[in-house]
Nucleic acid binder design. Structure first.
Lengths: 305, 305
DNA sequence: GCAAGCGGTAAGTATTCCTTATCATATGCT
DNA sequence: AGCATATGATAAGGAATACTTACCGCTTGC
């Protein structure tokens, strides 16, 4: 019923109009003049009406005059779309949503993000932070494109790319007997007031699991937890990355026996591709965290694939 | 630089999305399934990014999800344009401007126009009236698509299609000695008070030319002219079609010697095509006036080509 | 009156598009 | 299980399109 207009012949028509002739248009289009002639004739046949007066110097028919601005409009739309899609693919535009656990979000992402926007100025990033369960759910539900977290258990629907190891240690106030120790054995914690937190389950399945039975307190909120530690309420265990170094009175002492560590990595939906922008971020994160990270944030190490 | 998206593959993508699969889409598009597959792959290659997840049941990648509404938008624009142009060509839409001399505009156009809009309900017509010079100028200047008028002299830039002959006669009041005459000879007018008007120059070059020397008055406006005639100011000559029959006290008496007639016809720019709507009107006018007109408007006759 | 411009035509070739036939894999049904 | 029937991908051949070069006829300008 309605004929499919091809973009090219429309472009030809506009070129003829703009350059005032078939020859000039052909030259500018890097085509031979007959190619232009024939394409226009084909288009006219398809429309059932002439666009150019026959015979003389190329001049538009009234119908042609009617068509030209409409052709121009359609081509404008087309080019806008084409340009837009190309920008997306080439990572010059786009946006992505990502989720990260608080430690990663606050300790690693700030510098990563600033480098990222420098490298991909057109891409907009939304960073959501929450605990590992939150990250998992956000990725599973498609609310975010990628997540940065540790995986408690493998999930069929998720792909996990390990990026760095993060060793658990004991956090205490600077006046605590542990404060100046270089390392600790789990049995030494036996008599202490141990405050549980969201990362405590890292100890599950290790020799130190017994400690989990004793905690008097469980504080999930990191601000409350650090405040409690500063107040001398007790001590806790945390992965190094989750230890807020800006609290002057708190000390981090590595747990050497057993060595407990979480793997922080990239979480994404299995079998689903990423948007170009998300792929850029994923590759960027892997590149920056997967090989030589550290940069003063000792205690966690990249994972060599 | 920016790739030309073809309309067809975009349609394929939408069909796949809407029908939930390559096979179903192919069926609905009257294409084979490989044709759809390959076209989509070609498009993906051109864009440099996959639109559908590979492997499983057809499902969009995030990039595909980004593209689909944009494809849909472009195709909507395209189809709107295609439909619009088709409607123009098929005379279901469009508009035209025409000019006509007052006699034609007031005596012939009303019924013609009502028939025209019945036959071409989508076409809008603007009718401008003015004397023959006005019509000529409007056509020459492109302000109107076609004109209905008589041509005083041939014009290289204009094409004139004669449609009907319109005989000149004498118009006088019902109490004038000529009022009941069946016809008149020009010499009988010698002693009369002759009011000149815009059509008087029709007498130029005929035996009756001498009359043009005498007129005491010249009144170009038709309303003023008829009012003057009703007032008994004098008599005048007019083509039959220009004689306003609705004035009860005026009479039209054919001039039999010499027989003077104007040719009323279609005026258009030579060598220029008409818009579809204008072409429809031109053909319609020729069809209705060129062969068997009359319909009680005696005194002018169609011109058999 | 000739040269140089225009657009149109013809014939051949390259490319694009679409077909049929076939495959590998995944889903559904006893 | 296991066969039947979906799915989408692939290969090879053919039809349609788009483009090329070569040439024609016409107008325009010196």
């Amino acid at each position: 019923m309605l004929p499919d207009l091809k973009i090219q012949p429309l472009r030809y028509v506009l070129a003829i109009v703009d350059h005032g002739g078939f020859h000039a248009a052909a030259r500018q289009l890097h085509r031979s003049q007959p190619a232009v002639s024939m394409a226009v004739r084909e288009l006219e046949a398809r429309l059932g009406e002439a666009l150019f007066e026959k015979g003389a110097q190329a001049s538009l028919t009234p119908f042609g005059k009617y068509c030209v601005p409409r052709f121009r409009e359609l081509i404008l739309q087309h080019d806008r779309l084409s340009r837009d899609l190309l920008a997306q693919v080439e990572r010059q535009a786009g946006h992505l949503d990502m989720a990260a656990v608080p430690s990663v979000a606050s300790r690693l992402m700030p510098s990563l993000l600033s480098e990222f926007v420098e490298r991909y100025p057109g891409i907009r990033v939304a960073l959501h932070d929450g605990n590992a369960d939150f990250v998992r759910e956000q990725v599973l539900g498609g609310e975010v494109d990628i997540g940065l977290s540790s995986l408690w258990q493998p999930d069929e629907a998720l792909t996990f790319t390990p990026l760095l190891r993060d060793k658990v240690g004991v956090v205490c106030r600077d006046d605590h007997p542990f404060a100046d120790r270089a390392s600790l054995h789990w049995r030494e914690l036996a008599g202490e007031t141990l405050i549980g937190n969201g990362t405590s389950r890292l100890l599950e399945g290790t020799e130190a699991e017994a400690l989990l039975a004793s905690p008097t307190f469980f504080i999930s909120n990191m601000i409350s937890l650090t405040a409690s530690l500063v107040a001398g309420l007790g001590i806790t265990t945390l992965p190094r990355l989750a230890f807020a170094e800006e609290y002057e009175r708190l000390r981090f002492v590595p747990l050497e026996c057993p060595v407990v560590e979480r793997q922080v990595g990239l979480v994404r939906l299995a079998g689903r591709s990423l948007s170009p922008a998300a792929a850029a971020m994923a590759a960027f994160v892997v590149e920056r965290l997967g090989e030589s990270s550290g940069q003063g944030l000792g205690g966690h190490a990249p994972i060599s694939q």
